[in-house]
Design a protein around this nucleic acid. Sequence first.
DNA 1: CGAACTTTTGATATCACTCAAGGGACGTGG
DNA 2: CCACGTCCCTTGAGTGATATCAAAAGTTCG
Lengths: 246, 246
Amino acid sequence: MDQNARTSNPLIRKLEGFASLSDADRGLLERVSASARPIAAGTDLAREGEPPDGVYLIMDGMACRHKRSASGARQIMAYLVPGDLCDLDVALLDQMEHNITTLSDCSVVRITPEVVANLLEHHPAVARALRKSTLVDEATLREWLVNVGCRSADERIAHLLCELLLRLQVVGKATHDSFDLPVTQQDLADTTGLSSVHVNRTMQSLQRQEVIALAGTSLQILDLPRLKALAGFKPNYLHLGDRAAA
Amino acid sequence: MDQNARTSNPLIRKLEGFASLSDADRGLLERVSASARPIAAGTDLAREGEPPDGVYLIMDGMACRHKRSASGARQIMAYLVPGDLCDLDVALLDQMEHNITTLSDCSVVRITPEVVANLLEHHPAVARALRKSTLVDEATLREWLVNVGCRSADERIAHLLCELLLRLQVVGKATHDSFDLPVTQQDLADTTGLSSVHVNRTMQSLQRQEVIALAGTSLQILDLPRLKALAGFKPNYLHLGDRAAA
DNA sequence: CGAACTTTTGATATCACTCAAGGGACGTGG
DNA sequence: CCACGTCCCTTGAGTGATATCAAAAGTTCG
């Protein structure tokens, strides 16, 4: 089943880690994800206060969930990377209570509620994988709360980078030790609950320690064991099973 | 349908806000929740690293999800109040990646995966309500991330209290302006990412301003508009619809 | 080539933390 | 019924991590 995982389709790669898919399942997912459209950076896919408009699947690039507090500060609550899709059951809600916005140029599929319902009802393996994937998204959100609630600035940044490396590796968007991080330091600040100035200093410190190297938007992890140790990173919440070896 | 909501069953009260239930649905839920057992404060219902053991439903008291960071700090990631139930699909996971522990003496129902599956497959209105309820739990988690990521100490505490008042009102566990808060200041600290000393000072300040009054574990909101304003509280994430009037 | 955005740097400020000790409240056992 | 232990709340003093402010230096792109 692993040779099949060598598809370049990030959704299929991810879901195969959560359930064994049949050729028919894979074909179906291939067809569902074929209608990806390019979306420019900074585009809202969903807006707070508006009714949800279907389920979005990211095929390339990065997007995020975020909202603003009453005082105007922005909090990013999730990164959506290739293979991620937002809220299977979102159609049940009248209103979004947060925004979904692309952070970089993206390739995105909009899946209608009908197609989602069909997947969930008539394709049990896919349904299981999708539900499991949703549980992992929730676990990730909880881990982010731990990140902001409990960890120091250095730990927060290190933890975020560990997580991204693993998640991107799973869908074939990271090599052994590097990946593209197409977000500003302000975005990282709004993700980690820090100021952008402090994110800058923290990233510099990690570079001076030769734990990471940054060239443009390309991030290389020079010393992953060290980065994990700094972060106190335990990958169990991603429920990757044996894929967590990395 | 509102006269029916006057049941004292917190699960039914909550779910009726999310979908119209038939008498049969209500009867079924009544039967499911009839087997509540008393559980002492400080008991683990689920432990990190262990396989999940079914779905828990809180009928009375308060429990929480929490985990410890590598450095030993505890983060509480959710409060479970009467009517709340944890992760419908949790049976899909091999391992818990967080703990669920009672904060006070509780009355708890363990629902087997089979019963959950039956509810989801054969009782569409109940299934819709349960799924919607899960979406609200997620939205609440996101709001908590905003709370720790963006807000000052006073705002965090005020926001938490606003949320609890509303959630407890929905299930009939709060009067117009007061409810029981059976948690220590250390618990509140681990919830909000503050130190217990600072929680103490913040609570005192809210009392001095005559926004709240605390007598033992009983909390009274003296000036709800003020408390909401302090918190920048917007209840939309709870998806209460017209019940959010409070 | 200029405008807009992002990164970087330095100086200063502050909110919340830590440490440490005292005072209640509550329960248990003598 | 009192003594004692434990847990929680409270207070004060000192500290520190991170924020804020402001400006300069890069970068990107039309």
